[in-house]
């Protein structure tokens, strides 16, 4: 396969003008990943869960830090500056640590599915297996929070060629898995178009700290540069900036202080429409129905 035909080509130059509420130029959404990684997951034939034999003590407990310490530290800073989360949720967190999910719900955050566990991969699932994890996700989040999830970020970013069709079939209307633009676009499915909302690998805290080896202050500077450029270009046609986070990373004590200054900067700038994923999708689809 050369081209999965996910969407139509559209050049950045000369795009139709998107406008955001209040004339803001950049829609900013924060996407905390609230995850659960299993200590002893079954083996997937195509991907290892852990670098070390189980238990991978550092790998597992580093992630565990999120659910003991990091989440609240990160969430308090977000709440301080009025940033709601749009949560990429390992839905089994609803069973393992319901208090964390309840905290996010109480802050008014939106949830979308990031699979059952971040140690269970979708590669090689047949459509019925993938339907099962989609149904499980919808039912689990609805039971825990009352919210009907609208979006999907594939578990550990593992896909099948059916994924977009199957989430559309289940009634979801956005995907966070496509990285081809700084604006929302339409993604094609067998069940009509859904919205591909820009998530981000490049300014994801995981990439910042573990791919690019940035210091906390360098990462904060990166986010501000990303924001400044997108807010400026957004005068031509509204842009989207996502800040994807993992509280076992951004919630570490040497990182949260510089990150807090990023949120202060964006909140005080005046050009940012701070929103949840579903709100951005709705504003986009009001301008680009299909």
């Amino acid at each position: 396969m050369d081209d999965p035909h996910l969407y139509d080509f559209a050049p950045w130059r000369g795009r139709p003008k998107l406008v955001w509420p209040g004339g803001r130029t950049c829609a900013v959404w924060v996407a905390p990943n609230l995850e659960f990684y299993e200590i002893d997951p079954p083996t997937h034939p195509r991907r290892k869960s852990w670098a070390r034999p189980h238990p991978d003590v550092v790998g597992y407990t580093h992630r565990d830090y999120a659910n003991r310490v990091g989440h609240t530290r990160m969430a308090d800073v977000m709440s301080e500056f009025g940033f709601p989360g749009s949560v990429s949720l390992s839905v089994a967190l609803c069973q393992h640590h319901p208090a964390i999910v309840a905290d996010a719900a109480a802050r008014g955050w939106e949830f979308f599915s990031h699979g059952i566990y971040n140690t269970r991969y979708a590669y090689d699932m047949d459509p019925d297996q993938e339907r099962a994890i989609i149904r499980d996700s919808i039912a689990t989040v609805e039971a825990a929070t009352g919210q009907r999830i609208r979006g999907w970020l594939a578990p550990a970013l593992t896909h099948t060629v059916n994924t977009l069709d199957l989430i559309a079939e289940a009634g979801m209307d956005y995907t966070c898995d496509l990285y081809h633009s700084d604006q929302p676009t339409l993604a094609k499915t067998k069940h009509g178009a859904i919205t591909a909302i820009p998530y981000s690998l490049e300014v994801n805290d995981h990439y910042g700290f573990f791919i690019y080896n940035m210091s906390p202050r360098e990462y904060a500077d990166t986010l501000i540069r990303q924001y400044e450029r997108l807010a400026s270009e957004g005068e031509q046609s509204g842009t989207v900036m996502c800040i994807p986070l993992h509280s076992y990373l951004i919630g570490q004590p040497h990182r949260i202080g510089p990150f807090r200054e990023v949120l202060r900067h964006i909140a005080n700038d005046g050009r940012a429409w701070v929103a949840k994923a579903g709100e951005i999708v709705d504003a986009y689809r009001a301008q680009v129905p299909a």
Partner: peptide, 20 residues
């Protein structure tokens, strides 16, 4: 290729950790 159906079983999906 299809994954083994067991891959969708979650025997330690419960409140608290997946270990003791």
């Amino acid at each position: 290729m299809t994954l083994n159906p067991d891959y969708l079983d979650y025997p330690r999906r419960r409140e608290g950790y997946d270990h003791d």
